[in-house]
Design a protein around this nucleic acid. Sequence first.
DNA 1: GTACAATAATTGAGAAGTCAGTTAATCATT
DNA 2: AATGATTAACTGACTTCTCAATTATTGTAC
Lengths: 156, 156
Amino acid sequence: MKIEEALKTNKFKSDQHKAMLNIMFTASWLRSKVVSKLKCYGVSQEQYNVLRILRGSYPTPLCAKDITDRMIDKNSNTTRIMDKLITKEYINKWRGEVDRREVNISITELGLELLKEIDQEEAIDKPNYLNLSDAEAGLLSALLDKLREKSVTREQ
Amino acid sequence: MKIEEALKTNKFKSDQHKAMLNIMFTASWLRSKVVSKLKCYGVSQEQYNVLRILRGSYPTPLCAKDITDRMIDKNSNTTRIMDKLITKEYINKWRGEVDRREVNISITELGLELLKEIDQEEAIDKPNYLNLSDAEAGLLSALLDKLREKSVTREQ
DNA sequence: GTACAATAATTGAGAAGTCAGTTAATCATT
DNA sequence: AATGATTAACTGACTTCTCAATTATTGTAC
């Protein structure tokens, strides 16, 4: 379904504006796919994202700021997401020894197991990933990277 | 800033996965830009989106469902967004005469004025739109449209 | 026209996000 | 080592989102 159909309109101010709406719509579309996949595991997209980040650095822990820096949505309240993951025992947290302002956060065995389960389901669903060739996906990423350049205007 | 920098990682499962994270990150990035622009006008991105939709059909009113169909985030709670806009007197709402389940919603003069103001500010800020040529923006939209195709898998 | 299904909109309750302000620790300058 | 600035994490209050359940109305089949 093309974006004109998805938003039931042909009125776009410009190609750039149309692309912008398309990005936001596609992100929302992707998000709802991911959320519905994660639903039966009881984790939100943000929680899943954090677990993947922690697996990436495992067994080295990360501090909360390191995690925020790696998150898709930089405005997330990392503390609150951590609280949820601690309750579920998917992560551990302890005060930093070198810099006592920081906290160290590490994924637990249980957290790793959860990710493994989700990975397996994903492997089965592989074909439904994104309907793009590697080259197209690469091009898309390059365009998105370019789009965000030179955004320095009068209001920063 | 390339996506590798933005998320401080080089580990992507595939080009498709990287593109997916890039879309979500870019959407979040765009969103925070739009939100900060709208902040001084006291409307959220979703509220702004609805007002633009209503202006598009003005003076013909739309029912709540028509609006949802045109929204970027189809999961939004349209009723609640309308409530906010009614309080601010940017829209009017009345029960449908033909189908009494529906409500008719129309933008007010005040709502139109607000949009005009925002348009004017935007015109000044034009250069900071998206750093893409018309052709690039078109290509990006085409890739996003393609990406969403054929998403019919075993689960629905 | 009655019964049942489908649709449009709304509501309630709980979860999550947002944002400004606070605390605690460290850094930088003198 | 004392001062103030900066940084990391956290908290409270508030807003918004989410999702299932509900109400009101219309459509469909007999």
